[in-house]
Amino acid sequence: MEKEFGYMLKQLREKKGFSINQLAERAGISNSQISRMENGVRGIPKPPTLKKLAEALDVPYAELMNAAGYLESDNSVATHANETLPEWATSKDKRDFKKMLEEDGELMFDGIPLDDDDKQRIKDVLTGLFWEAKQMNKRKKKNDVPPDSPPHS
């Protein structure tokens, strides 16, 4: 996955005519970090880094989230506005996510209602953060050892 994402990132950067240094400056991240991403040695960046890259490259944030594997299609689940889900998500995870999206009160910032573009940006960020947190929780539970377990030799 890291190599595929890195290849796509490099293609996007070159298509825009940016050097690694130019992209680094525009995104506010180090050139070595971009180089490691493109070469598949850094791993998949976190959603906030993807957001910076999307803005610097002038591409949809959801496109980078999808390419990084945070969002994947799952047509077997009816979700709000064709949202996409990671393949590891359980039915409970999907239900939690759907519930989060459907709690659709008026979104405001500083007392001013947000327009549809701002709402979508917030949903994109929340989507990435939601699935990242779920995945970290799953890894944490898998690595937890009960306190009364005998030590491994």
Rank of each mutant, 00 (worst) to 15 (best):
Pro151Thr: 03
Glu83Asn: 11
Lys140Ile: 02
Ser153His: 12
Lys119Thr: 10
Asp116Ala: 09
Asn143Phe: 09
Glu103Pro: 01
Leu12Cys: 00
Ser73Thr: 07
Thr127Gly: 11
Leu71Thr: 03
Arg139Asp: 12
Ile34Gln: 02
Arg95Leu: 15
Leu9Tyr: 00
Asn39Ile: 11
Lys52Tyr: 00
Met37Lys: 00
Pro146Gly: 08
Asn39Lys: 10
Glu102His: 11
Pro147Gln: 13
Glu38Gln: 09
Lys15Gln: 12
Ala78Arg: 12
Phe130Tyr: 15
Leu64Arg: 05
Leu57Lys: 03
Pro147Trp: 15
Ala54Tyr: 01
Asp58His: 10
Asp104Pro: 02
Pro47Gly: 05
Leu107Pro: 05
Gln22Met: 08
Lys94Leu: 12
Val145Gln: 13
Ser32Arg: 12
Glu132Met: 11
Gly69Pro: 08
Gln135Met: 08
Lys3Trp: 04
Lys46Arg: 13
Ser91Asn: 11
Leu50Asn: 01
Lys141Cys: 08
Tyr7Trp: 10
Val145Trp: 15
Glu87Ala: 15
Ser91Asp: 10
Glu4Val: 07
Ser73Gly: 12
Thr90Pro: 03
Leu23Gln: 01
Pro47Thr: 02
Lys119His: 08
Ala67Ile: 08
Glu2Gln: 11
Glu103Val: 13
Pro45Ser: 02
Ala89Asp: 04
Leu9Ile: 03
Phe109Thr: 05
Gly105Pro: 08
Asp148Val: 10
Gly105Cys: 08
Lys123Ile: 08
Arg36Cys: 05
His152Ile: 10
Ser30Leu: 04
Lys140Leu: 12
Gly40Thr: 01
Phe109Ile: 03
Glu25Leu: 09
Met1Trp: 04
Gly28Val: 01
Lys138Ser: 13
Lys140Trp: 08
Lys92Thr: 06
Lys99Tyr: 10
